[in-house]
Write a protein that binds this DNA or RNA. Structure first.
Lengths: 140, 140
DNA sequence: TTTTAAGTTGTAATCATTACAAAAATAGTG
DNA sequence: CACTATTTTTGTAATGATTACAACTTAAAA
């Protein structure tokens, strides 16, 4: 796998230590962390870390197409790596977010004449299996 | 077309005057209004209207599947009617939002076994035609 | 009417995000 | 190395959408 410094350089970002550690965190993250989660996780390792730096870095990553802001039915942004496109499923009952690894086929031919498409994000909402089971037994 | 009171009743919502007027506004809206726009537009007609009521009503509409929160790369929610599914395109340069009327074909078969899908929202981002033209002439 | 519930309102709090200017670190140059 | 310019990081204060909540008003039920 490409090293973090090479990944950043190839996107025109100077690979500072902080930036590499945030990239590391995004690579390892199973969920879709928000800014505070990233800050809380890295603050012990970088005692001087500021939340503003996390914001700055994620804006930079998003602008340079290293990461992507995932818009969920939340009041806050969550992030993942731009290199692994996938759709998300969010349960309307428990708000849990699941990755949809088998990407739905989004057919865009002729839908947006003239526009230069950079990214397609798909957010599916509904009731997850666990919550359906709960409803079934509870007779709500 | 079905009258507003009938629409609301059929979704289990008591059709108060305020609710019908907010529904009216959503029906007529060409763009995707945020809470403040709805409030500003209706406040002259309902002088006692409170912004909290607009929030309450939109939450109710969303819960009862009359309206839908559209998540864009903004810090605020925008709303449209749940009855007219469509995708959205947002330009990363000017932030303008365009409806995508020819809905992209999203193939979900087998992608989410067990889940009960209620809604699929597609947000396409990229550079719109106008912004491409600007870039081309300005040599940025 | 009297009682109860539903709908609406205004104020104050919450909290993610941004603005901004200073401090620290890094790179470039003589 | 010393000096300067640039980039990166930091902390504090503001912004602004959203929520909490309790009071008030209207409508429905008894």
């Amino acid at each position: 796998m490409m090293q973090n410094d090479a990944v950043l350089k190839s996107h025109g970002i100077k690979p500072s230590l902080t930036r590499m550690m945030i990239l590391d965190y995004l690579k390892a993250a199973k969920k879709h962390p928000n800014v505070d989660e990233i800050y809380q996780a890295l603050q012990p390792k970088i005692p001087t870390l500021s939340k503003t730096t996390v914001y700055n870095t994620l804006h930079l990553f998003t602008e340079k197409n290293v990461a992507r802001a995932v818009m969920l039915k939340d009041q806050e942004n969550r992030y993942d790596l731009a290199s692994h496109p996938h759709a998300h499923f969010q349960c309307v009952k428990c708000n849990e977010v699941f990755d949809v690894f088998r990407l739905p086929d989004v057919q865009l031919d002729g839908v947006l004449p003239g526009a230069q498409v950079q990214d397609v994000s798909v957010l599916i909402s509904g009731v997850c299996e666990a919550c359906q089971a709960k409803e079934g037994t509870r007779h709500e």
